[in-house]
Amino acid sequence: MILIFGGGGQLAQEIVARSARAGVPAVAIRRDAADIADDRQVADAIRKFEPTTVVNAAAYTDFDRAETDSSAAMRANRDGPAVLAEHCRANGLPLIHFSTDYVFDGRKVGPYREDDPAVPLSVYGRSKLAGEEAVRARHADYLILRVSWVYGRYGENFLKTILRLGQERDSLNVVADQHGSPTASTDIADAVIRLIPVVEGGGAPFGTYHFAGTGETTWYMFAAAILEAAAELTGRTVTVRPIPGSDYPAAAERPANSVLDSGLFERTFGFRARPWQESTKRVVAELLAEGGVT
């Protein structure tokens, strides 16, 4: 059975939903029931559910707020993974832990590989990198999956925000000089489900991998694709205008390039995420079929 920490987040909810469809037992536990930085609560959760694999989908993800709330970001993103890794090691459990493209500074030309230097620009990025290091230092049987620009039906994310704004406004200004690889939460959840028998079978090449939507784009082009997919179903058109990141000031600096190369994951495990355009259309259609975004 998969035990997922961070049950209130979009990834945990998606993994539970996709696991149910695949017939894979999974349970997600929310922060108010088990804070991953609390040693006793983690021990109690593992004792109660007796999992065969642990997935850490818990994280502090408010990029900008982290700049002034670094202690909370470090507690969730560094200290929590350290506690989980300790308990997974003690109980002989493999750990799948999620990290982020924001561990990179964005100065590289071309997609980032796993062995590229990690030089975060923000408190959020530093806290996530510290979490990676904590896991590696405490447990050998881990998979760290760096994911990028995650979106889906659950939680708050860029795709849902753009859909909502597209219902309220006739035009949007979106940053056009930051590049990344949008990744559907369904693709990530399906990857986790496919990895379970590998990690539990003892044959997994443990380590750090990139897993992101196939292809790359900018926030501006991503927004345009979202609204184009919606227009095909609703008939409502919205104008999207490109702007530089300097016109959209934020507390946390974003990397200009955080495109991830997922080739190592594909070569190792035999599959990769779908093209981001394909998954974007599917998620938009699902949300509109459910009544849109409020």
Rank of each mutant, 00 (worst) to 15 (best):
A59W: 03
V55T: 08
E156I: 10
R31T: 14
C88R: 10
E156M: 06
Y154V: 07
Y220E: 09
F5D: 02
Y151D: 03
F222I: 08
F63A: 00
F222Y: 15
E253N: 01
A231H: 11
Q178S: 08
G207T: 14
M1T: 13
E14Q: 15
E86A: 07
R236K: 15
L260Q: 09
Q277P: 00
A191T: 08
Y220V: 07
A140E: 10
G207L: 13
G23W: 12
V147C: 12
Q178R: 14
V135G: 01
A230D: 02
Y248A: 13
E86W: 04
Y151K: 11
G166F: 07
G8T: 15
P117L: 13
A90S: 11
P111V: 11
V16R: 14
Y112P: 03
E253M: 06
V119L: 11
P205W: 11
F211Q: 06
R21D: 13
S246Y: 02
E290N: 06
E286L: 12
D44I: 09
A225V: 05
H210P: 00
E266L: 09
Q41P: 00
L163V: 06
H179A: 15
E290R: 14
M74T: 01
A73P: 00
A256M: 07
F98Q: 02
V135A: 05
A230H: 04
F49G: 01
T208S: 07
T161N: 09
G92V: 08
I96E: 09
I193H: 08
E228Q: 14
I144H: 02
D105E: 04
P244I: 12
G80C: 07
A37R: 10
Y220A: 10
P25G: 12
Y151H: 13
S99E: 04
L129R: 04
L195M: 13
A72E: 01
R47N: 08
N157H: 09
S71T: 08
L3P: 00
A224V: 13
S171H: 11
V293K: 14
D247V: 07
R169F: 13
R194P: 06
I46A: 01
W276R: 06
P120F: 07
Y102A: 06
R126A: 12
Q277R: 15
A212H: 11
R136C: 08
A256D: 04
A223T: 08
T68W: 00
F271D: 03
T186C: 08
V109I: 14
G291W: 07
A273G: 03
R40P: 00
R169K: 15
V109E: 14
E253Q: 10
F63P: 00
A285L: 06
T100P: 00
A22T: 11
E67W: 01
E14M: 15
Y60L: 02
E232Q: 13
V293W: 08
T183C: 10
R21P: 02
V42S: 05
N257R: 12
G131Q: 04
A76D: 05
R194D: 03
P120L: 10
A82G: 13
H179F: 15
G292I: 13
V135T: 01
K108H: 07
R254D: 00
I46L: 15
G166N: 10
A20C: 04
N91D: 01
G270F: 10
G125M: 04
D177K: 04
Y102V: 06
G201V: 11
K108E: 03
R164S: 05
I46M: 06
Q13I: 11
Q277V: 14
A33G: 05
T280H: 06
E133L: 15
L121W: 02
A230S: 14
